[in-house]
Computed example of a mutant assay.
Amino acid sequence: MHKIAEGLYVLPSFPSFAINTYLMEDVLIDAATKWDALRIARQLRGRPVNLLALTHVHPDHQGAASKLCQSMNLPLACHADDQQIMEGRKPMLPRSWMIKLQEKTWMGRPHPVSKVLKTGDELAGFKVIHAPGHTSGSVIFFREKDGVAVAGDVMSNLNPFTLRPGLHEMPDEYTVHRSQSRESIRLLASLDPAVVCFGHGKPVTDRAALKRFAQALP
């Protein structure tokens, strides 16, 4: 595992930093695709893990969740606005061609949510901040003492189609509500994070670049 900050690690994957999962103290953040369950379980062997928390519910973040929760006896957490999707009671959104394709190739089985997240909750020293737009239940995990944020797909540091690095809004094919998504990017920038860990791409430490990106949004 690669250490990013105190108590925060990114799990190795291939291609590197294409689809990220993190260990935040004893909390696994996100679960990649259904094909990644064995890899993630192997990488976590010997480490205390007591919860799997999702930044949001899309196939490349919930894919291995059910298998990992069952095999490692982990409770599952996500925001209330994504809970019914994770539990298979509502369809995954948006209903774009890309999401439909990933449902067939990457999506894991539905799984009961044991812990419903809301703004102000705390996990492993990180505060939960609701940041909708990419999905209705997208969240940021933010640790105030050192300015570390785990921000899922609020935005990315990698083009999801070309895999070229750089700050990007998530494409329309993955975004439920564009104006909310932009407000959430502005919210992230307003936290003035020292490090931002996204679902896609390497961690970002350039505070000025993040602020410039947010300020340039329509």
Rank of each mutant, 00 (worst) to 15 (best):
P171T: 03
D172L: 09
A151S: 12
S156P: 06
H168F: 11
H168D: 11
M170W: 07
K145D: 15
P171I: 01
A149R: 01
G152Q: 07
R143F: 12
G152I: 04
G166W: 00
D153T: 06
S179L: 09
T175Y: 03
Q180R: 08
A151T: 08
V154Q: 10
R164D: 15
E169Q: 15
L167Y: 09
Y174L: 11
Y174R: 02
D153Q: 12
M170E: 13
V176S: 05
S156K: 10
G147W: 15
G147R: 14
L163P: 08
P160Q: 06
T175D: 04
S156Y: 04
N157Q: 08
N159K: 05
S179A: 12
H168G: 04
K145W: 03
A151G: 13
D153W: 03
Q180F: 05
F142K: 01
P160F: 04
F161R: 09
G152T: 05
D146Q: 07
G152Y: 01
D172A: 14
F161P: 02
F142G: 02
Q180V: 00
A151I: 11
M155K: 00
M170C: 13
S156F: 02
D146W: 13
S179W: 04
V148Q: 10
D172Y: 06
M155P: 00
N157L: 01
D172P: 10
V154K: 12
D172G: 08
N159L: 07
V148G: 03
L163M: 13
D146I: 08
Q180M: 11
P171F: 02
M155Y: 00
T162G: 12
G166K: 00
E169W: 04
H177W: 06
G147P: 11
A151Q: 07
F142P: 04
M170Q: 14
Y174W: 15
N157R: 01
V176M: 09
R178K: 14
V150G: 06
R143N: 09
L167V: 06
L163G: 01
H177I: 00
S156I: 05
F161N: 10
G166P: 07
S179E: 14
G166C: 03
V148M: 09
P160K: 06
T162N: 10
V148C: 10
L167K: 02
R178F: 00
R164I: 13
T175L: 05
F142Y: 15
L167S: 08
A149D: 09
D153R: 00
S179Q: 12
E173H: 08
V150M: 07
D146H: 06
D146E: 13
N157D: 04
A149L: 11
Y174Q: 07
R178I: 02
Q180D: 11
F142E: 07
E173C: 09
D146M: 14
F161E: 14
H168Q: 15
A149M: 10
R143Q: 12
G166L: 01
K145N: 13
V150S: 07
L158M: 14
M170P: 06
G152M: 03
V154S: 06
E173R: 09
T175V: 11
E144K: 15
P165L: 01
V148T: 14
E173Q: 14
K145A: 15
T162F: 07
T175R: 05
S156N: 14
A149S: 14
H168I: 12
G152P: 08
V176G: 07
H177G: 01
P171C: 03
K145Q: 15
P165N: 03
N159A: 08
V150P: 02
T175Q: 07
N157W: 00
N157K: 00
V176H: 10
M170H: 06
Y174D: 09
L158W: 01
